[in-house]
Nucleic acid binder design. Sequence first.
DNA 1: GCAGACTAGTTTGTAATACAAACCATAAAG
DNA 2: CTTTATGGTTTGTATTACAAACTAGTCTGC
Lengths: 105, 105
Amino acid sequence: MSKDLRGLAALDRIIHEPARLMLVMILSTVESADFLFLQRETQLSKGNLSAHLTKLEAAGYVKIEKTFKGKYPLTICRLTAAGKRALSDYRAGMNKALGSGKGRP
Amino acid sequence: MSKDLRGLAALDRIIHEPARLMLVMILSTVESADFLFLQRETQLSKGNLSAHLTKLEAAGYVKIEKTFKGKYPLTICRLTAAGKRALSDYRAGMNKALGSGKGRP
DNA sequence: GCAGACTAGTTTGTAATACAAACCATAAAG
DNA sequence: CTTTATGGTTTGTATTACAAACTAGTCTGC
Protein backbone atom coordinates (compact mmCIF):
# COMPACT_ATOMS: atom_id res chain seq x y z
CA MET A 1 0.00 0.00 0.00
CA SER A 2 0.75 3.68 -0.15
CA LYS A 3 3.32 3.60 -2.91
CA ASP A 4 1.79 6.69 -4.43
CA LEU A 5 1.69 8.34 -1.07
CA ARG A 6 5.38 7.91 -0.47
CA GLY A 7 5.80 9.78 -3.74
CA LEU A 8 4.58 12.84 -1.90
CA ALA A 9 7.82 12.95 0.03
CA ALA A 10 9.65 13.28 -3.28
CA LEU A 11 7.62 16.21 -4.53
CA ASP A 12 9.67 19.05 -5.93
CA ARG A 13 9.72 21.60 -3.11
CA ILE A 14 10.49 24.39 -5.54
CA ILE A 15 7.20 23.79 -7.32
CA HIS A 16 5.32 22.74 -4.24
CA GLU A 17 5.23 26.19 -2.69
CA PRO A 18 1.78 27.59 -3.59
CA ALA A 19 3.10 30.98 -4.66
CA ARG A 20 5.54 29.38 -7.06
CA LEU A 21 3.02 26.82 -8.23
CA MET A 22 0.79 29.71 -9.20
CA LEU A 23 3.64 31.30 -11.08
CA VAL A 24 4.61 28.24 -13.07
CA MET A 25 0.98 27.44 -13.80
CA ILE A 26 0.49 30.91 -15.16
CA LEU A 27 3.72 30.83 -17.11
CA SER A 28 2.80 27.44 -18.53
CA THR A 29 -0.16 29.06 -20.26
CA VAL A 30 1.23 32.32 -21.56
CA GLU A 31 4.62 31.88 -23.22
CA SER A 32 5.91 34.97 -21.46
CA ALA A 33 4.86 37.44 -18.81
CA ASP A 34 6.24 40.58 -17.23
CA PHE A 35 6.73 41.26 -13.54
CA LEU A 36 3.68 43.41 -13.00
CA PHE A 37 1.38 41.08 -14.85
CA LEU A 38 2.51 38.28 -12.59
CA GLN A 39 2.04 40.46 -9.56
CA ARG A 40 -1.50 41.33 -10.54
CA GLU A 41 -2.36 37.72 -11.24
CA THR A 42 -0.86 36.30 -8.09
CA GLN A 43 -1.50 39.17 -5.67
CA LEU A 44 1.96 38.66 -4.26
CA SER A 45 3.93 41.56 -2.85
CA LYS A 46 6.75 42.80 -5.05
CA GLY A 47 9.43 41.57 -2.70
CA ASN A 48 7.86 38.18 -2.41
CA LEU A 49 7.37 37.87 -6.15
CA SER A 50 10.96 38.91 -6.78
CA ALA A 51 12.24 36.33 -4.34
CA HIS A 52 10.17 33.52 -5.83
CA LEU A 53 11.18 34.39 -9.36
CA THR A 54 14.82 34.40 -8.31
CA LYS A 55 14.37 30.98 -6.80
CA LEU A 56 12.66 29.65 -9.89
CA GLU A 57 15.44 31.05 -12.02
CA ALA A 58 18.11 29.50 -9.79
CA ALA A 59 16.35 26.17 -10.21
CA GLY A 60 16.47 26.64 -13.96
CA TYR A 61 12.69 26.56 -14.25
CA VAL A 62 12.25 30.13 -15.42
CA LYS A 63 14.26 32.33 -17.72
CA ILE A 64 14.31 35.97 -16.73
CA GLU A 65 15.09 38.66 -19.23
CA LYS A 66 15.59 42.25 -18.20
CA THR A 67 14.70 44.70 -20.91
CA PHE A 68 13.15 48.13 -21.17
CA LYS A 69 9.69 49.28 -22.05
CA GLY A 70 10.45 52.77 -23.29
CA LYS A 71 12.46 54.13 -20.40
CA TYR A 72 11.15 51.84 -17.66
CA PRO A 73 12.73 48.55 -16.76
CA LEU A 74 10.77 45.50 -17.68
CA THR A 75 11.49 41.96 -16.60
CA ILE A 76 10.07 39.24 -18.77
CA CYS A 77 9.72 35.68 -17.54
CA ARG A 78 9.38 32.47 -19.48
CA LEU A 79 9.04 28.89 -18.35
CA THR A 80 11.99 26.79 -19.54
CA ALA A 81 11.78 23.24 -20.82
CA ALA A 82 13.03 22.06 -17.45
CA GLY A 83 10.31 24.12 -15.81
CA LYS A 84 7.62 22.53 -17.94
CA ARG A 85 8.94 19.11 -17.14
CA ALA A 86 9.08 19.87 -13.43
CA LEU A 87 5.52 21.12 -13.50
CA SER A 88 4.18 18.12 -15.32
CA ASP A 89 6.07 15.78 -13.00
CA TYR A 90 4.64 17.61 -10.05
CA ARG A 91 1.12 17.38 -11.37
CA ALA A 92 1.52 13.72 -12.11
CA GLY A 93 2.82 12.99 -8.63
CA MET A 94 0.18 15.03 -6.94
CA ASN A 95 -2.70 13.64 -8.97
CA LYS A 96 -1.53 10.13 -8.35
CA ALA A 97 -1.32 10.68 -4.61
CA LEU A 98 -4.57 12.58 -4.28
CA GLY A 99 -6.36 10.21 -6.58
CA SER A 100 -5.50 7.15 -4.54
CA GLY A 101 -7.62 8.28 -1.65
CA LYS A 102 -10.54 5.93 -1.24
CA GLY A 103 -12.54 3.30 -2.95
CA ARG A 104 -9.75 2.29 -5.31
CA PRO A 105 -9.79 -1.49 -5.16
CA MET B 1 -8.49 34.14 -15.68
CA SER B 2 -6.71 32.18 -12.94
CA LYS B 3 -9.49 32.17 -10.41
CA ASP B 4 -8.65 28.59 -9.53
CA LEU B 5 -5.02 29.45 -9.36
CA ARG B 6 -5.51 32.15 -6.80
CA GLY B 7 -7.13 29.44 -4.75
CA LEU B 8 -3.69 27.96 -4.35
CA ALA B 9 -2.72 30.82 -2.09
CA ALA B 10 -5.52 29.79 0.24
CA LEU B 11 -4.47 26.17 0.53
CA ASP B 12 -4.36 24.84 4.05
CA ARG B 13 -0.68 24.94 4.96
CA ILE B 14 -1.18 22.34 7.65
CA ILE B 15 -2.29 19.84 5.06
CA HIS B 16 -0.06 21.13 2.31
CA GLU B 17 3.16 19.90 3.88
CA PRO B 18 3.93 16.59 2.10
CA ALA B 19 4.75 14.72 5.29
CA ARG B 20 1.44 15.71 6.84
CA LEU B 21 -0.47 15.14 3.62
CA MET B 22 0.84 11.60 3.67
CA LEU B 23 -0.31 11.22 7.24
CA VAL B 24 -3.82 12.46 6.69
CA MET B 25 -4.15 10.46 3.49
CA ILE B 26 -3.15 7.33 5.36
CA LEU B 27 -5.40 8.12 8.29
CA SER B 28 -8.27 8.81 5.91
CA THR B 29 -8.16 5.19 4.83
CA VAL B 30 -7.59 3.28 8.06
CA GLU B 31 -9.87 4.54 10.84
CA SER B 32 -6.95 4.43 13.27
CA ALA B 33 -3.22 3.86 13.29
CA ASP B 34 -0.44 3.67 15.84
CA PHE B 35 2.78 5.64 15.86
CA LEU B 36 5.06 2.93 14.54
CA PHE B 37 2.72 1.96 11.77
CA LEU B 38 2.69 5.56 10.62
CA GLN B 39 6.44 5.71 10.85
CA ARG B 40 6.85 2.61 8.72
CA GLU B 41 4.41 3.87 6.12
CA THR B 42 5.83 7.36 5.86
CA GLN B 43 9.52 6.66 6.49
CA LEU B 44 9.66 9.73 8.66
CA SER B 45 12.05 9.93 11.60
CA LYS B 46 10.43 9.58 14.99
CA GLY B 47 11.08 13.18 15.93
CA ASN B 48 9.69 14.43 12.69
CA LEU B 49 6.62 12.23 12.90
CA SER B 50 5.99 13.29 16.48
CA ALA B 51 6.23 16.95 15.54
CA HIS B 52 3.85 16.58 12.61
CA LEU B 53 1.32 14.64 14.64
CA THR B 54 1.46 17.30 17.33
CA LYS B 55 0.81 19.94 14.72
CA LEU B 56 -2.10 18.00 13.24
CA GLU B 57 -3.54 17.53 16.70
CA ALA B 58 -3.17 21.24 17.48
CA ALA B 59 -5.05 22.00 14.28
CA GLY B 60 -7.81 19.67 15.42
CA TYR B 61 -7.34 17.38 12.44
CA VAL B 62 -6.15 14.36 14.34
CA LYS B 63 -7.13 12.90 17.67
CA ILE B 64 -4.26 11.30 19.56
CA GLU B 65 -4.92 8.74 22.22
CA LYS B 66 -2.18 7.44 24.47
CA THR B 67 -2.81 3.94 25.67
CA PHE B 68 -0.76 0.84 26.41
CA LYS B 69 -0.13 -2.31 24.46
CA GLY B 70 0.61 -4.67 27.32
CA LYS B 71 3.29 -2.74 29.18
CA TYR B 72 4.50 -0.55 26.36
CA PRO B 73 3.09 2.83 25.54
CA LEU B 74 1.06 3.05 22.37
CA THR B 75 -0.22 6.17 20.69
CA ILE B 76 -3.19 5.78 18.46
CA CYS B 77 -4.18 8.39 15.90
CA ARG B 78 -7.49 9.02 14.22
CA LEU B 79 -8.55 11.60 11.69
CA THR B 80 -11.27 13.85 13.09
CA ALA B 81 -14.28 15.12 11.17
CA ALA B 82 -12.50 18.46 10.80
CA GLY B 83 -9.50 16.61 9.46
CA LYS B 84 -11.57 14.82 6.86
CA ARG B 85 -13.15 18.06 5.81
CA ALA B 86 -9.78 19.79 5.59
CA LEU B 87 -8.41 16.99 3.47
CA SER B 88 -11.31 16.98 1.08
CA ASP B 89 -11.17 20.75 0.77
CA TYR B 90 -7.48 20.53 0.07
CA ARG B 91 -7.96 17.90 -2.59
CA ALA B 92 -10.73 19.89 -4.19
CA GLY B 93 -8.64 23.03 -4.30
CA MET B 94 -5.58 21.28 -5.59
CA ASN B 95 -7.43 19.31 -8.24
CA LYS B 96 -9.16 22.42 -9.44
CA ALA B 97 -5.92 24.33 -9.71
CA LEU B 98 -3.93 21.54 -11.31
CA GLY B 99 -6.75 20.64 -13.61
CA SER B 100 -7.04 24.13 -15.04
CA GLY B 101 -3.68 23.86 -16.71
CA LYS B 102 -4.16 24.09 -20.43
CA GLY B 103 -6.78 23.99 -23.10
CA ARG B 104 -9.69 24.74 -20.80
CA PRO B 105 -11.65 27.47 -22.62
C1' DG C 1 20.20 -6.99 40.97
C1' DC C 2 22.31 -4.39 37.73
C1' DA C 3 24.66 -3.40 32.93
C1' DG C 4 23.30 -3.33 28.48
C1' DA C 5 20.06 -3.20 24.75
C1' DC C 6 15.37 -2.42 23.05
C1' DT C 7 10.70 0.05 22.66
C1' DA C 8 8.14 4.22 22.15
C1' DG C 9 8.18 8.35 21.96
C1' DT C 10 9.45 13.96 23.18
C1' DT C 11 12.53 17.91 23.46
C1' DT C 12 16.14 20.72 21.56
C1' DG C 13 19.06 22.92 18.11
C1' DT C 14 19.67 24.53 13.51
C1' DA C 15 19.48 25.66 8.87
C1' DA C 16 16.15 26.97 5.40
C1' DT C 17 12.01 29.43 4.24
C1' DA C 18 8.26 32.79 3.09
C1' DC C 19 6.92 37.08 3.58
C1' DA C 20 6.60 42.22 3.97
C1' DA C 21 8.76 46.57 5.07
C1' DA C 22 12.32 49.43 3.78
C1' DC C 23 15.11 50.76 0.28
C1' DC C 24 17.04 52.13 -4.58
C1' DA C 25 16.89 54.08 -9.19
C1' DT C 26 14.57 56.44 -12.74
C1' DA C 27 10.94 59.42 -14.68
C1' DA C 28 6.98 62.41 -15.18
C1' DA C 29 3.99 66.14 -12.81
C1' DG C 30 3.19 70.32 -10.30
C1' DC D 1 13.15 71.24 -6.86
C1' DT D 2 9.89 68.56 -4.35
C1' DT D 3 6.34 65.12 -4.89
C1' DT D 4 4.33 61.04 -6.87
C1' DA D 5 4.63 56.89 -9.59
C1' DT D 6 7.08 52.92 -11.84
C1' DG D 7 9.68 48.69 -11.45
C1' DG D 8 11.89 46.36 -9.01
C1' DT D 9 15.90 44.41 -5.03
C1' DT D 10 17.76 43.96 -0.36
C1' DT D 11 17.14 43.29 4.54
C1' DG D 12 14.94 41.69 8.70
C1' DT D 13 12.02 38.56 11.10
C1' DA D 14 9.21 34.97 12.48
C1' DT D 15 7.95 30.18 11.20
C1' DT D 16 9.28 25.79 9.75
C1' DA D 17 10.85 21.04 8.91
C1' DC D 18 13.98 17.99 10.21
C1' DA D 19 17.35 14.99 12.74
C1' DA D 20 20.22 14.29 16.77
C1' DA D 21 20.09 13.91 21.47
C1' DC D 22 17.45 12.85 25.30
C1' DT D 23 13.69 10.65 28.50
C1' DA D 24 11.16 6.94 30.47
C1' DG D 25 10.12 2.45 30.99
C1' DT D 26 10.98 -2.88 29.85
C1' DC D 27 13.34 -7.06 29.03
C1' DT D 28 17.62 -10.14 28.92
C1' DG D 29 22.10 -12.04 30.39
C1' DC D 30 25.11 -12.90 34.02
